[in-house]
Nucleic acid binder design. Structure first.
Lengths: 253, 253
DNA sequence: TTTTGTGAAACCATTCACAGCC
DNA sequence: GGCTGTGAATGGTTTCACAAAA
């Protein structure tokens, strides 16, 4: 599987620059750079150095530069990066120049919150439809959208040109929902249910499991607390505030 | 890197096996194995092969075996792993044998949902206190807990022996909240606000950004749709259901 | 024979350090 | 002089393939 397509050196004249395929690790960081850049732009910065931008995104500058170099980047030596230009570059790369439609399935506790999350709209997505399997919830109005029954999924997905499905159901129904999404032509799924989904090749699934995040933190807590018992000590106490002041100003959600 | 502590084969009789430090990638997968194991146990399995367990956890078996070998694992050649034993091992490693207290700050849209999320309680955590900066919300009863003002954080953190803080506030206040958590002695933070936090050494931060997940999916959508335009084609259509049947049965949340 | 545990190989990601350009 | 872009070095992760154990 190793090599990418041979087509190679992407300095093509005309249209689309034919997406060089980026390392996954880089892709996962681009959204973070984008957020930091938007903050900088709002604060009135025209250019930014790799050092500054890296700081605002929480990475080191070498990594940032290497990441950006993969996009065939647009920096100027001795100066830095043009903020506006870089925003455009990254938004194009992430496919955010078209606002993608998202279907949210499961309007329970979490689904309800996601449906109301302003961060989606403000970062390039449009929640286009809400679904639930429970007939009692169908018709409910959430954030300006009516909840529809999941059996309507296929019709709505086409009509609203849904690209991405978000599953916020209990684990027991998640696979059925995934099957329905795939059958409706959805090829990207964000899964909040704590279970593994199986989907055909060509469909991407990303999983977010809130309890897993806590468990990972728990591991480190566990390790830290057993270290304090050790000879070397490592300074056990609550460690007075050190937090370096940050340019990061943050737009409201 | 290769070798763990020289003390090696940890069939020690008495006390704590003194945590070998695991690769981060392994730590991040243990919770997934644990979930799969709980499902298997509920389904009545006593033992499981690496192949089966890997399938249920969505990884390949070589990776699973290497991960488990880092815990000085307890498999039997020719047979597989003892499910109950492995559950204990992983729970111990993750520090889940003690139920950790969690403070949740910010009871807006998302915070509200997190406060009601049953998955936390069922997987080793106890939401011990809710906080908000908005006086209008203080006193509100959510899922059996009263919302308290954030100025009480330090007192409550000690009284309830809070180990982990969850930030579900807007980005603009997240750094202040993080500072307050750190000052109160919290050394692990799960941050849902879309911003970078700076914290002293020794404090762990994990970040979950819902919009970032969608943006990563968007990238792959973008790539897929530009590939369909290419000569090779790669089979563009919605691809009929292939989803292999899975043992995965899933406990309700 | 089945299945684990693990060296060795391959792969991917991060960091270093500096040449090249502004 | 300052800063980007990038080869080369390093370090971590995944995969392979098989010896050893039950």
């Amino acid at each position: 599987m190793s090599q990418h397509r041979p087509g190679g050196p992407n300095g093509r004249a005309g249209g689309v620059p034919a997406l060089p395929d980026l390392p996954e690790a880089t892709v996962a960081r681009l959204p973070e750079y984008l957020r930091a850049l938007h903050n900088l732009a709002e604060a009135g910065n025209d250019t930014v150095s790799s050092e500054e931008l890296a700081g605002a995104a929480g990475v080191n500058s070498a990594k940032l530069r290497k990441d950006l170099s993969h996009l065939g980047s647009y920096g100027t030596r001795g100066v830095g990066y043009d903020v506006a230009l870089l925003i455009d570059q990254i938004e194009f790369t992430l496919g955010l120049t078209q606002r993608r439609g998202v279907a949210l399935v499961g309007v329970g506790n979490l689904g309800h919150a996601l449906a109301g999350y302003a961060g989606f709209a403000s970062r390039g997505f449009r929640i286009a439809a809400l679904f639930d399997a429970d007939p009692a919830r169908v018709g409910e109005l959430i954030n300006g959208l009516h909840v529809r029954h999941i059996s309507d999924l296929a019709d709505v997905a086409v009509a609203e040109s849904i690209a991405i499905g978000v599953i916020a159901t209990p684990a027991a129904s998640a696979q059925d929902v995934a099957d329905a999404l795939v059958a409706a032509g959805v090829t990207s799924i964000l899964n909040f249910a704590p279970c593994v989904l199986s989907v055909p090749d060509g469909v991407d699934v990303r999983k977010v499991d809130l309890a897993v995040e806590l468990q990972i933190l728990s591991f480190h807590e566990h390790r830290k607390s057993s270290l304090t018992a050790l000879p070397g000590g490592l300074g056990g106490g609550p460690a007075g505030l050190v937090s370096a002041a940050e340019p990061e100003e943050a737009v409201g959600t």
